[in-house]
Amino acid sequence: MCLGIPGQVVEIMDEAAHIAKVDVGGVRRNVNIGLLAGTSDAVDLGDWVLIHVGFALSKIDEEEAASTIKFLEGLGEAYEDELEQLKGSDIA
């Protein structure tokens, strides 16, 4: 549960509720971007964010995202479990 996984923002779903759709390795799920709203890290389409338990925790650049994904893939089971759980998520 402690992993931060990178996802790319593909759609702002609900501006008022701070819900955005992100793409994590082909899996598209909604996450909450309220922790970045109103900060210098405010999220836009195409941005990469680090996701933890369904919330974007910080904005990262593309290179960092790519490197983190590579690292996480190397973790094997821990990352696969996290992705499985993300797939089961249905935040609105």
Partner: peptide
């Protein structure tokens, strides 16, 4: 659940039940 927001959704869908989220971290 993957996220506390998923727990919240369970609560919305089950208004006749008490839904508790065990928060750690």
């Amino acid at each position: 659940v993957y996220s506390p927001l998923d727990a919240l959704k369970v609560a919305r869908l089950n208004p006749e039940r008490e839904v508790v989220f065990y928060a750690i971290g």
